[in-house]
């Protein structure tokens, strides 16, 4: 069903359902809050379907497709009624777009697969939603800090977002954006890979952190809280002073600093994305 609010005078107002993702909801609420802040600033009516839980990516990528099937079904039922679904995670968006239908088909649920495919076409990662649906790159943000951006594997190679996040960041007032060397290389997270292949994961992370530290950035940003949890966890262990912030958190920042309770001032204290209200 369409929730577009047609109005003769003003532009039609878009309603979007926010899929916060289980990780941001539980561990990094500031990422989801910042997503709401930006969307509302741009005039989007944000809905948060209360029934939402998880897209099932971790189960799918760990081989537990039968357990994931219930999550896919739950996701489809929760979000099927919405015209636009937006989420602050490239890898969850990738799972919804490329895996939900595939898993349902593999487990003999063609009807569910067809419904999942239809939702997949209406699901967009945060930066895609801003640039492709809302057609904006300047979201009126202010962030006077030195930032480097890790483009994340699933942003680049599953969603093909290209330079959309960077276009959004370049439009932020006051920002000093430093190019990250070997940006397209994986940080070594990979979900359960980080635990099952901890040594290899750590070796990959070490190289990613060396590249981040080489930029002398205050902030390492990305479009995925999970990659940032990994990079931030490593930077924190090094007590490097570099902190991680989700793309949405930077775009939510303004001169007045008024966002939904997010502290936009980078602290010396290293922490993971969205640690603002943790301090």
């Amino acid at each position: 069903m369409t929730q577009l609010d047609h109005n003769e005078v003003t532009a039609p107002r878009i309603t979007a359902a926010l899929f916060a993702t289980c990780l941001a909801d539980t561990m990094f609420p500031d990422v989801a809050k910042a997503t709401v802040t930006v969307l509302e600033r741009l005039g989007v009516r944000v809905e948060f379907p209360q029934a939402q839980t998880c897209c099932g990516q971790m189960h799918i990528n760990s081989g537990y497709q039968r357990d994931a099937l219930a999550l896919i079904e739950h996701f489809v039922e929760t979000f099927e009624q919405y015209e636009h679904i937006v989420l602050p995670s490239a890898s969850c968006a990738g799972s919804i777009r490329h895996q939900h239908g595939m898993v349902a088909r593999r487990l003999g649920k063609p009807a569910l697969a067809a419904r999942a495919d239809a939702i997949a076409r209406r699901t967009r990662e945060f930066s895609e939603f801003l640039t492709d649906v809302l057609k904006v790159t300047d979201v009126d943000a202010y962030f006077p800090h030195r930032v480097t951006y890790h483009p994340t594997c699933h942003s680049l190679r599953m969603l093909h977002v290209g330079d959309k996040p960077l276009r959004l960041l370049r439009a932020v007032r006051g920002i000093e954006l430093i190019e990250l060397p070997a940006a397209d290389q994986c940080c070594g997270f990979g979900g359960t890979f980080a635990v099952k292949n901890a040594d290899t994961s750590t070796a990959m992370l070490a190289d990613k952190m060396a590249n981040v530290l080489g930029t002398k950035a205050e902030i390492c940003s990305a479009a995925d809280a999970s990659c940032l949890m990994h990079i931030g966890g490593g930077l924190s262990r090094l007590t490097s002073g570099v902190r991680t912030m989700h793309l949405a958190e930077i775009l939510a920042s303004t001169e007045s600093g008024e966002t939904h309770g997010v502290s936009v001032r980078p602290s010396r204290q290293t922490s993971n994305p969205g640690s603002g209200n943790d301090v």
Binding site: P29, K196, A198, G232, R237
Partner: peptide, 29 residues
Amino acid sequence: RTTIRRLPWPLSRWTASRDLAKPPVQTFR
């Protein structure tokens, strides 16, 4: 601390080289 530095197995394989953010006071929902 502001981060978790040690967890039992198998998550110890994470905390061997990486901190883990502490869950927030309030979930997004």
